[in-house]
Design a protein around this nucleic acid. Structure first.
Ligand SMILES: [Zn+2]
Ligand SMILES: [Zn+2]
Ligand SMILES: [Zn+2]
Ligand SMILES: [Zn+2]
Lengths: 143, 143
DNA sequence: ACACTAGATGAAAATGATTGTCAAGACCGA
DNA sequence: TCGGTCTTGACAATCATTTTCATCTAGTGT
């Protein structure tokens, strides 16, 4: 009985997501899918992403509005990213120190089943230009 | 010209928030205010909380649904909290190591104006009872 | 005390991501 | 091939938060 079933929709979602080099929202992914032939229902995109999240195959961050953004994860352990508030570019950071710190937290606080989310943001070098004004060359690359 | 104006509504929001020992949502705060004589419009509660946030007078966390929760901050520097997923109890943690780590991140990555949010959750000791069943004594304290 | 105006209020409507519904369709083992 | 289970997707429903906009007011200057 039962198991996760292989369907063209899920395949499409995973493939399209895999092609994305930056974090994308469910809505954006849905649009991308619609654009490239394979139209998948928005509801299905949400469900697929949630499944991928549970399966640990994607990293999830929330932007300032609370919207969830997904990125296919290369490794098998969770990561944290530094994301540019201007252009959306993301860069994985080495957070092993934080991971260790978080782990230790369980022992010192008496809390169990610890979980953590760490959102890092800033302004990347390319996005930092002299005086303002300039509408930023490659205007808003991506999200 | 210009400035923040002192109004009874803002006073009420700040006072009521100050009385809360745990994180509360804007909606909850609005209900509390309505309960205790001073009725303040929901919109105003939202605006007041946003202002308090900008002023750095409150700590803000987002629960798993993305809803924002506020707690009046005792000190003048930001803090991180470990929050129980069962009862909502919160406990400030010493995150100086993480703060230092985050600070260093700017130098190594070239990103500027770094910001970070760190959400920690777990299950507190009182919420961990033998086998399930028992509806947990002080059933759901708070949120 | 009075007038004046940038700020502030709040009821109601809009927004927008996410989830629930449920009938119709597809996968896969027997 | 058959049937039960898992999936899909159009659409409606949620729900926190934001906009709108007409009305009010704190606070400054006269
Ligand atoms: Zn950038
Ligand atoms: Zn981590
Ligand atoms: Zn607890
Ligand atoms: Zn911090």
């Amino acid at each position: 009985m039962g198991g996760v079933r292989r369907t063209p929709q899920r395949t499409a979602v995973l493939e399209t997501l895999g092609r994305c080099r930056e974090f994308v929202s469910a809505q954006e992914l849905h649009a991308l899918l619609a654009g490239g032939g394979s139209a998948v229902g928005l509801t299905t995109v949400y469900r697929a992403l949630r499944a991928l999240d549970r399966a640990g195959l994607v990293d999830v961050v929330r932007d300032e509005t609370g919207e969830r953004l997904y990125l296919r994860r290369p490794t098998d352990e969770h990561r944290h990213y530094l994301i540019c508030r201007r252009c959306g570019r993301s860069q994985p950071v080495d957070a092993r120190d934080v991971e260790a710190w978080a782990e230790r937290l369980g022992e010192t606080t008496g809390f169990a089943e610890l979980e953590h989310t760490l959102e890092l943001s800033g302004v990347c070098r390319p996005c930092r230009r002299p005086t303002a004004a300039t509408p930023n060359g490659a205007a808003d690359a991506g999200r």
